[in-house]
């Protein structure tokens, strides 16, 4: 158990902020759902409903420039083996991102982050750089696939699901939104956001699907943003942003 506690400190401490975000969520779960402090810890367990509301309020931003001249673009991503090489797959007028996908605002997928809610609003927070109490720690992973053109309809499609490690819940609300790349470097959410309350594993009936009809077949950059909110368990606001893919679908 000592080792486990040590691990929890490592997972949830302030140093975690420096780790690159990944799809695996490591959560700190207060073992006291009433929100009272225990064993000297200062964290507050978040009632699920309120947490869900709060998380939505800090969802990944989608820049809205509003210029009429903006249009969808091929995303100048590079193949993995081309990273670090000048050039790559770029087109006229495109920005060269050096092989790194530009990010919208993201939060690290661990629990060492600062809340942005209004004063008095509930959230889970670990002040002091990781001084944690005896909270439970659990792990789950957010999964998605590459945005693609559907084989049965002329639309972009992307799936999302989750894999439970050891979290004390059987279901999660999975949300998938598709984003189209624009020539100002922004990603804009398009189409129908998919949302479903599903079991772990991504199997039959346990995936959420985002869809966006295509207006033409111009090669265009797409990606998806997958969010998983565990039912009945406070989780962090990290989201999976899938790698950009250029597909023959442009919606504008």
């Amino acid at each position: 158990m000592a080792g486990l506690r040590s691990s929890r400190h490592t997972l949830c401490g302030g140093r975690g902020m420096d780790r690159p975000p990944g799809p695996t969520h490591r959560l700190c779960l207060a073992d006291n759902p009433s929100g009272r402090q225990s064993h000297g810890a200062t964290e507050t367990a978040v009632p699920t409903a309120r947490l869900g509301h709060w998380l939505r309020s800090i969802s990944v931003s989608t820049p809205r420039c509003g210029h009429a001249s903006l249009s969808s673009q091929v995303f100048p991503y590079r193949r993995r083996h081309e990273r670090g090489v000048t050039g790559g797959v770029t087109g006229a007028g495109e920005r060269d991102f050096g092989g790194v996908q530009p990010r919208t605002r993201r939060r690290p997928h661990n629990c060492s982050w600062k809340r942005r809610g209004k004063p008095g609003e509930l959230g889970f927070r670990f002040p002091g750089g990781g001084s944690l109490g005896p909270e439970a720690v659990c792990t789950f992973t957010t999964r998605g696939d590459y945005v693609h053109v559907s084989s049965s309809a002329f639309e972009a499609s992307g799936h999302g699901w989750w894999v439970n490690g050891n979290c004390p819940t059987s279901t999660a609300v999975v949300t998938v939104e598709l984003q189209e790349y624009y020539n100002d470097g922004s990603w804009r959410t398009k189409g129908t956001v998919g949302q479903a309350t599903v079991r772990s594993g991504g199997g039959a009936g346990n995936r959420a699907t985002g869809r966006a009809g295509c207006n033409n077949s111009s090669l265009t950059g797409w990606r998806s943003v997958v969010d998983v909110d565990l039912v009945g368990v406070a989780d962090d606001p990290g989201k999976l942003i899938t790698p950009a893919r250029n597909i023959n679908c442009r919606r504008y």
Binding site: P20, R80, R143, R199, G201, G202, G203, A204, T242, P243
Partner: peptide
């Protein structure tokens, strides 16, 4: 059943080293 063609294909692809995860810097 809790699996389907999709989830089985993902699982098998992953096990065999054929699947590239849809995440940044996947190798």
């Amino acid at each position: 059943v809790s699996s389907d063609a999709y989830s089985l294909f993902v699982a098998r692809s992953s096990a065999m080293g054929w699947l590239t995860s849809a995440e940044e810097n996947a190798s």
